[in-house]
Design a protein around this nucleic acid. Structure first.
Length: 672
DNA sequence: GAGCACTGC
């Protein structure tokens, strides 16, 4: 890569260097051929804050194994950096530049934006891969956007990610389960492949801990001499964002009821502030519906258009959020965290931040995950406030005191890795290590096998996590997998069960259920159940029609419980000719059902590859239940005798549990 | 009588 340096030129003196003072030129793309300065797209590209760091970024990537880029939203880093890298020659010689995102939607939209800017057809030179959709062409695609989950999957077949020259992990500050997994494994890949460049892009300043993590000391492994290895010390560069200023307001005294306080704040904004839409962050559906009701009932607010927003809403209801605000009205969107990162609303000028969100916590002792309302972090609070400054200067009203924000609010949230069951991660790690069946078959050569072993997680307890999960959580994960027959006494994948489970992209308990179904002769039915279990919810959440919803649901209800009920819904959907109208009438989420069809299709292809013949048990739900138990026996529980309120206790740890009100068995319990 | 948000060949 050094050929892109102007010979004899002075190297940049500081990290924050730009073209003029650095004296560094990249000659790979002459101004005329790359079209600099002519089209309006090109001018737009140059106006992005990241543009003036172009040279610095290329210099750092050239000379450091890992570069950490701290950039606020709107800096243009996601769309521009992959293009800079390509212009500098990182995609030459059949190599690919990868850029990962935590969400599918982001992958698609960023890829199409970049293809447009480069004037190429999406899916050729610029492509993307998400589950169920591969828009790339081998040997043609040079810049590839993908979800971090997909890259993790790719590592199973290609543990050293040989085809990539640079991997940019975007939105790393979100610290999702798969981002953390990916970063842990990438660190290992880098030890074996020092030429691989990693760019970590994050919105928060906490780059220090990332930097410490990636400061690897390489073992001497005899690198090819003509390629000088880059510095092991990660470089950090920060790029300013493009958002407008947001004025922060705090309450003077702590509020006791954030729901009422949020409602009052909205009313006071409407009363005193100039036009502009309002976004309110609350915690969940209950809160949101209550606030919507309070605001709609209030007689003095005819000028307010109040809309709820959460993921359980039907697509049509979600789309209302994006419709233009009627003249003379002020739109108020009351939302969960979905509006913090996943959805961007234009036209928001005021944000009301309750300071809370619902978060998942995992207790490894009884092996139970809980959803609890908990205080958010400073990073979240800043992200929420930023939502007010996208189109013009805005205001953010925080329903907590400034003292609380400064002194008590944690800087970062707890990474998901430390809040979840690790059952899926252990499998992924093990698979990444051994490379799985495909690699065992393909990589007969000793050198490759050595590389694979070196990469892997021989010992899950000793794996180098970015944020280490609790020992209890790791032990519990190993225990569950051992009891399912997926890991052996040495915590290695068993053959064939363990390897087959690793091949199936679902929760290991579900995968085990599928494999058992083969023995019981009901795989055809079980994969339908597995597909439904892997989507959010197939039911639509309805406001004000709860009774009707329950009645309709009973039409599908099976005495055997929810799993067989899902099977009934699926059959009904197929029978209707996959009709969206049918879904609407039956309070079923059409998009979820389409996803069920996709996942089911994927599973049936996969099982065929694993040599499993699909077979239906027809009406024999007995075998169906046996297969379910084979995967979920760890969750078995027993109804307490004489319990007036239907209390169960888990077999394993005598934990008190109850049937969830959304279950079809719940109404049976009430005798409806 | 209840469902933060994501994701996977």
């Amino acid at each position: 890569m050094s050929k892109y340096w102007k010979p004899g030129s002075e190297r940049p003196r500081t990290v924050l260097v730009d073209d003029e003072e650095g004296g560094v030129l990249f000659l790979s793309s002459p101004p005329s051929s790359s079209g600099f300065g002519h089209s309006s797209l090109e001018r737009q590209r140059q106006r992005l804050p990241v543009y003036k760091y172009r040279t610095a970024i290329l210099y750092l990537v050239e000379n450091h194994a890992t570069t950490i880029i701290v950039g606020e939203t709107g800096s243009g880093k996601t769309t521009q950096i992959p293009q800079y890298l390509k212009e500098a020659g990182w995609a030459e010689g059949g190599r690919v530049i990868a850029c990962t995102q935590p969400r599918r939607l982001a992958v698609q939209s960023v890829a199409s934006r970049v293809a447009e800017e480069m004037g190429v057809k999406l899916g050729e030179e610029v492509g993307y891969t998400i589950r169920f959709e591969d828009q790339t062409k081998p040997n043609v695609t040079k810049i590839k956007f993908l979800t971090d989950g997909v890259l993790l999957r790719e590592m199973m077949d290609d543990p050293l990610l040989i085809k990539y020259s640079v991997i940019m992990v975007d939105e790393a500050h979100e610290r999702s389960l798969s981002t953390d997994m990916l970063l842990g494994l990438l660190k290992k890949v880098q030890r074996r492949r020092p030429q691989l460049r990693i760019i970590i892009s994050s919105a928060t300043i906490d780059a220090k801990s990332m930097s410490t993590f990636f400061h690897i000391r390489r073992r001497n492994i005899g690198q090819a001499a003509e390629d000088p290895t880059p510095s092991e010390l990660p470089a950090i560069l920060s790029v300013e964002g493009k958002g407008y200023n947001v004025e922060i307001h705090y309450v003077e005294e702590p509020v006791s009821d954030y729901l009422q306080a949020a409602v009052n704040t909205v009313l006071s904004i409407h009363d005193k502030e100039p036009p502009g839409d309002i976004l309110v962050f609350l915690t969940g559906q209950d809160d949101i519906n209550a606030a919507v009701q309070l605001l709609t009932e209030d007689a003095q607010n005819n000028g307010l258009l109040v809309l709820p927003l959460f993921s359980g809403l039907s697509r049509a209801d979600q789309d209302l959020i994006f419709s233009p605000t009627p003249k003379g009205k002020r739109k108020v969107v009351i939302s969960t965290n979905i509006a913090e990162t996943s959805l961007t609303l234009e036209g928001i000028v005021y944000v009301v931040d309750s300071g809370f969100s619902k978060q998942r916590f995992y207790n490894p002792i009884p092996d139970i995950e809980n959803l609890v309302v908990a205080p958010i972090s400073k990073a979240s609070a800043r992200q929420r406030a930023g939502r007010a400054g996208r189109v013009q200067p805005g205001k953010c009203f925080r329903l907590y005191t400034e003292e609380y924000f400064v002194k008590e609010m944690p800087a970062e949230g707890i990474p998901e890795m430390q809040r979840s069951s690790l059952v899926s991660c252990v499998i992924q790690g093990n698979k990444g290590e051994s490379g799985g069946l495909n690699d065992l078959r393909r990589n007969q050569n000793t050198q490759n096998e050595l590389k694979l072993k070196a990469l892997g997680i021989d010992n899950i307890l000793g794996f180098d996590w970015l944020a280490s999960p609790s020992p209890e959580a790791m032990i519990r994960a190993l225990e569950v997998l051992y009891s399912l027959g997926i890991l052996d006494e040495d915590a290695k994948l068993t053959s064939p069960t363990g390897f087959q489970v690793a091949e199936i992209p679902l929760d290991p308990m579900i995968s085990k259920m599928i494999l058992s179904a083969d023995t019981y002769g009901c795989s055809e039915d079980i994969i339908t159940i597995a597909a439904v279990l892997s989507v959010q919810s197939i039911w639509i959440s309805v406001r004000g029609a709860q009774k009707e919803f329950d009645e309709v649901k009973l039409r599908f209800a099976a005495a055997e419980g929810d799993h067989v009920t899902y099977l009934n819904v699926y059959k009904g959907f197929i029978h209707s000719g996959k009709s969206s109208q049918w879904c609407y009438k039956n309070y079923i989420n059409y998009h979820a059902m389409k996803k069920v069809i996709d996942i089911r299709e994927q599973l049936s292809r996969l099982l065929r590859r694993l040599g499993i013949v699909l077979k239906s048990c027809e009406r024999d739900t007995q075998v169906l239940r046996k297969a379910i138990i084979a995967g979920f026996f760890a969750h078995a529980c027993c109804l307490e005798e004489f319990s007036p309120n239907g209390m169960y206790k888990t077999i394993k740890s005598s934990q008190e549990v109850y049937i969830h009100p959304s279950s079809v068995l719940f109404s049976e319990l009430l005798g409806i």
